[in-house]
Design a protein around this nucleic acid. Structure first.
Length: 666
RNA sequence: AGCGGGGUGGGGUAGCCAGGUUUAACCCGCGGGGCUCAUAACCCCGAGAUCCGUGGUUCAAAUCCACGCCCCGCUACCA
């Protein structure tokens, strides 16, 4: 079983999301299939949880409608990215829901779940309980005002909601009142020793995953509440838990099992999933980003143990660091990054797959940049690999009637070259067995370079006139290596590899056991397909042009109607008070006079651009009817508008003559 | 502030866990040359690194340890 972290589909995944998870998992799965392993590759959309619920509320649609749409889009895009899932499902799948409920009933009857009556802060206005981040207040230890329900950001002290001084609802600012509720807890500490030895004794866990997990265990595991007082999610199956749902993280990780189950059910092989989960010989491999480590090395193993069913614990958890975009964090709101739909509108999936694997953040955060993309596509794929293929095939086409030449005798260099290819193959295997995808891809490119050198040194264009048998041997060897490269690259750039391998008579879809093709002698006399250029170079200019096109297309889609515009209540306000916010360089706490609308609070990230005294008494444009939020604990009822030219220096919008506070902006 | 990761030629990275197999490797870029089968591509030669700093362990340190400096991420509903 190969699993990849389940993308959270409140929006579209971006390049960073997929490199650590689905793309890496796909490469591994393709490689293992090629070697004849019995592989099932599963993942799915993670669609429960409050972020999606809130997003749906904001859009005024049911959560299910939102996730139906997003799941459909993402699933289709994954196909276009050539991700070869056996089952890409979703957490709303009936099979998953039933599996999760049965699973938790089982754990419950095994005695690993207890309930606790807790007095929890409850917001009368929002009519909801306020766990973790839904509540803020003053830290009892350091006095920091914007401490959250689970931790104080200023001093790092762990908290619980009842300890906060002067607590308020993080959503609306209302003072919560205590209300009794009951929650179901998973007794995680009881697995401390088992988990510790599991983590310690699993030599395949990468260092980042091991260190992080051991730290958590050393700090002491705490019981985890598995129920939530929300509506969107899987109904908790415990007696008396009506109206509660299972915490999203507790159920999503079980998707690996349920997705396998669902896959084989569809095939009509009801019991086959057991081969992957209950047979101790079967291995389960996970590909995730580093943020997901505890859920895969602690929570998931503990849940599997608690079931008492003898499920295989993760054989290895391959976690990557983060991918940045031009040195910055991917950011939807700031439009930094490339999303998986946009990527495919610009370049073929194989270009992206190759580039992303080449810069896969295996030991540290790495950064995607367009110059890297150009380097990988132009220099590696096109010049080194593509050109080797093309020069070999065209030469055979011109001088050997397009048939693989028959070598009469191989000289020492020919033999050496074939040996080098064999060694590269072995190194490639060594890398991939450890899921060092980046190194594997480098090995392949290195072989292509050596082959280019070999052809140069051998000068078949000269020997074909003087000693044709020598040229035949050279091209035989070159063809052998080209085919080898095609096979080795198949997991990385499947579409291109298929096109290439087809010329050698290997049909697409025969990828299972493709590895055997490496051992076979190259069939002399076999007619090769007509050479066709595999890649096209690109340039910074072309990238910029395509980005502009994307932006244009985006604008067209986003054009809004006059009615929609009129929903904004835009006003001119006078800043009457400015206070810095403890613990933030950027954030300022403003009070803005909106005339008859009253004086409103605003939090604005202007601290790096303006001194407080510059702001006082200024007239500014604000959105007066935006959903109130808390930013770093600062209540914000209106949004101050400013121009952002990308330099990081914002410019406030100010009317060009003095107008009354509260004037409407039309 | 806490937690986590990192600092290697002009740019991007590997090596570090398991110290010696490296005169510190690879790609891009740069300077020179070769070749002409090939997608102005390929091949060769060259310049370019106090492996963040200081101290320690060791016969031996980019690699292990300690301290310091500097970056980045997470801790905010963007992984």
């Amino acid at each position: 079983m190969i699993g990849s972290a389940w993308p959270y589909i409140n929006y579209m995944p971006h390049l960073g999301t997929i490199i650590g998870s689905v793309l890496s998992a796909d490469v591994a799965a393709r490689y293992l299939r090629m070697k004849g392993e019995d592989v099932v590759l599963v993942s799915g959309s993670d669609e429960h949880g409050t972020p999606i619920e809130l997003e749906a509320v904001r859009q005024g649609i049911p959560p299910k409608k939102l996730t139906d749409e997003n799941h459909r889009k993402v699933k289709k895009l994954f196909e276009r990215w050539a991700l070869s899932f056996d089952n890409y499902t979703r957490t709303e799948s009936p099979v998953h829901i039933r599996f999760v409920q049965d699973f938790f009933r089982k754990i419950y009857s095994n005695g690993y779940i207890f309930t606790e009556e807790v007095v929890f802060p409850h917001c009368p206005r929002c009519r909801r309980f306020l766990p973790d981040r839904f509540i803020q207040g003053k830290c009892p230890r350091c006095g920091f005002e914007a401490a959250r329900g689970d931790q104080c950001d200023a001093c790092g002290w762990p908290l619980d909601p009842s300890k906060l001084v002067e607590p308020v609802c993080a959503l609306c600012g209302e003072t919560p009142s205590p209300k009794t509720t009951k929650h179901w807890y998973f007794d995680l500490p009881r697995f401390t020793h088992q988990l510790e030895s599991y983590v310690k004794e699993n030599p395949r866990l990468p260092e980042n995953a091991r260190n992080f997990s051991l730290n958590l265990i050393r700090e002491g595991l705490k019981p985890r509440p598995i129920t939530r007082d929300t509506e969107w999610g899987i109904p908790a199956p415990f007696p008396g838990a009506e109206g509660k749902t299972i915490y999203v993280w507790m159920e999503a990780v079980l998707g690996y099992v349920s997705a396998t189950l669902e896959h084989f059910q569809r095939l009509g092989q009801e019991d086959r999933w057991r081969d992957f989960w209950l047979d101790p010989e079967a291995r389960t491999v996970y590909f995730i980003g580093k943020d997901n480590i505890p859920f895969h090395t602690i929570i998931l193993p503990a849940l599997l143990l608690a079931s008492g069913e003898g499920y295989n614990l993760p054989w290895t958890v391959n976690s990557t660091e983060f991918l940045m975009f031009e040195g910055q964090k991917f950011s939807k709101s700031r439009r930094i990054g490339i999303w998986i739909d946009e990527a495919l509108r610009m370049f073929p999936a194989d270009y992206w797959r190759y580039t992303l694997i080449s810069i896969r953040p295996e030991v540290k955060d790495t950064s995607f940049s367009w110059s890297t993309f150009l380097e990988k596509v132009n220099s590696d794929l096109n010049d080194t690999f593509g050109n080797l293929v093309h020069r070999t095939l065209t030469f055979i086409g011109r001088h050997f009637e397009g048939k693989i030449p028959t070598p009469e005798a191989l000289d020492i260099y020919d033999g050496e070259m074939l040996k080098v290819a064999k060694e590269a193959q072995k190194e490639f295997e060594r890398n991939l067995e450890q899921f060092k995808l980046q190194a594997a891809v480098l090995t392949v490119m290195d072989l292509a370079r050596k082959a280019n050198k070999y052809v140069n040194d051998k000068e078949p264009w000269r020997t074909v006139k003087t000693e044709p048998s020598k040229a035949a041997a050279t091209l035989y060897v070159a063809a052998k290596i080209v085919k080898t490269l095609g096979i080795l690259l198949q997991p990385f750039i499947p579409s291109t590899a298929d096109v290439l391998l087809e010329k050698f008579g290997v049909k697409p879809g025969e990828s299972r056991k493709l590895w055997d093709e490496l051992r076979k002698e190259l069939a002399s006399g076999q007619k090769l397909g007509k050479p066709k250029v595999l890649f096209k170079k690109t340039s910074l200019e072309e990238v910029e042009k395509k980005l502009k096109e994307l932006e244009q297309a985006g604008k067209k889609e986003e054009r809004i109607s006059a009615e929609e515009l009129s929903r904004l209540n835009l006003r001119v306000g006078r800043i009457v008070d400015v206070q810095p916010v403890a613990g933030s360089r950027k954030l300022l706490r403003l009070k803005i006079d909106l005339g008859e609308e009253g004086v409103k609070a605003a939090a604005a990230g202007l601290g790096e651009c303006y001194q407080p005294e510059e702001l006082r008494d200024r007239l500014v444009a604000v959105v007066a009817n935006i959903q109130p939020v808390k930013i770093l604990g600062v209540h914000s009822e209106v949004m101050v508008l400013a121009a952002d030219d990308g330099t990081g220096k914002f410019a406030l919008l100010t009317p060009d003559r003095a107008v009354k506070s509260g004037s409407k902006i039309r």
